[in-house]
Computed example of a mutant assay.
Amino acid sequence: MLNVFGYLIRWPTRNQRPRSPTAQAATYSSYKSKNTGKCLLAISPSGTFIFVSKVYGGNVSDRFISHDSGFLDFVEEDDDIMADRGFTIRDLITNKKATLNIPPFTRKCAWGKKKLLNVIEIKQTRKIAKLRIHVERAIQRLKLFRLVGNIIPWSLKPIMNQMIKVAAFLCNLMPPLVRR
C-alpha cells in the first residue's frame, strides 16, 4: 500500500491528421482543436511511471480511459490519488476505498469578475501544486523522446502504444526526480 499512489494525467499525443473521416472524428480533440491521442499515466511519489495506458483517441473521456485501461484494478484501499480537475472519477475511486485529491474549483466573487478560493482551498491548492511540479518534470522527460514528444506520423499508429511504454520505461531508468 502506497501513501500516495500517483498523479493521474491525460497526456495528449499529437497525431498527423488521418485521411479517413472516421479516424479523424475519433482522434479530434475539441479541447486542443487538433487530432490527438490520450494516454493515462500514473506517476509514483518518486517520479517514476508506474502505469501507462494504451493510447486512445482524443475525443474519449477521461472517465472512460480510467475505467477501460485497467488502472482501477491497481488502486488499493487507502491509496491517495491526485488528479486534474477534469477527472470525474471520484465515485470509482471511492468504491475502491481510496481517496481522490483534485484542486478546488474557483468561484465567482460577489464584487466583480474575479474568482476566489477560501483559505483552506488556497492551502490545499498549494500543497497539490508542490507535488504537481514533479509530475510536470516526469512528463517533460517523456517528451524529450522525439518520436513521442513531436507529432507522431499516422504510419506509426500500429506501434504508438509500444513507443510510449518504451519511452516511459527508459525514463524510469534515469536518476530519480525526487530525493527524500
Rank of each mutant, 00 (worst) to 15 (best):
I133W: 07
K97D: 10
F71A: 03
D68I: 06
Y7G: 01
Q140I: 00
A138S: 15
K157I: 01
V119Y: 07
V55Y: 02
L156A: 09
N95R: 13
Y31L: 11
T36G: 08
T106M: 10
F87H: 10
E76F: 13
Y56G: 05
A98P: 03
S30I: 07
T99C: 06
R63P: 01
L116R: 10
T125D: 05
R180Y: 09
W154Q: 06
L92Y: 13
M174N: 14
I122V: 14
N161H: 08
K96P: 11
A110L: 11
F169T: 14
K130I: 09
L41R: 01
L131F: 10
F5I: 00
I81C: 09
R180E: 09
R63G: 12
G112A: 05
A25H: 08
P21Q: 02
R180N: 09
F5Y: 14
I128H: 08
P176Y: 06
I128N: 08
L92N: 04
H67S: 15
F87A: 05
I81S: 08
E77W: 03
T48W: 00
I9V: 06
K114G: 15
T27F: 00
F64W: 13
R179L: 14
E77V: 13
S53N: 05
V135L: 09
P176L: 14
K143I: 10
M174D: 15
V4E: 03
I89N: 06
A26P: 00
I81L: 10
H67I: 14
N118W: 00
L8P: 00
R17I: 11
V178L: 13
A83D: 12
I164F: 04
F105M: 09
I139H: 02
G86F: 06
F87T: 10
P18E: 00
R90H: 11
F145E: 03
L173V: 01
T99A: 07
D73T: 12
N150G: 04
W11K: 01
V75P: 01
Y31F: 14
I43S: 02
R63M: 07
P158D: 04
F105Q: 09
L8I: 06
V119S: 10
L147C: 09
N35D: 09
M1K: 12
N118S: 02
F169C: 13
M1G: 11
P45V: 02
K143G: 15
V60L: 07
K38F: 10
H134F: 10
V60R: 12
F74S: 06
D79N: 15
A98H: 03
L8M: 04
R132V: 07
M160S: 02
I102G: 00
A25I: 04
I93A: 13
V75L: 04
A26H: 02
L100K: 03
I164P: 01
K96W: 14
I81V: 14
Y31E: 11
W111G: 12
S53I: 04
Q140H: 07
Y56R: 05
E121G: 02
S53C: 06
G149K: 02
G57E: 00
T125Y: 08
S33Y: 07
P175E: 15
D73A: 14
L8K: 00
D84G: 07
Y56P: 05
A168K: 01
A26C: 03
S20D: 15
S46K: 15
K113N: 13
L177H: 04
W154I: 07
K108M: 13
L116V: 14
Y7V: 04
L92Q: 15
R146T: 12
C39D: 03
K113F: 07
A167L: 02
D84N: 06
P45Q: 11
I65G: 03
I81W: 08
H67K: 15
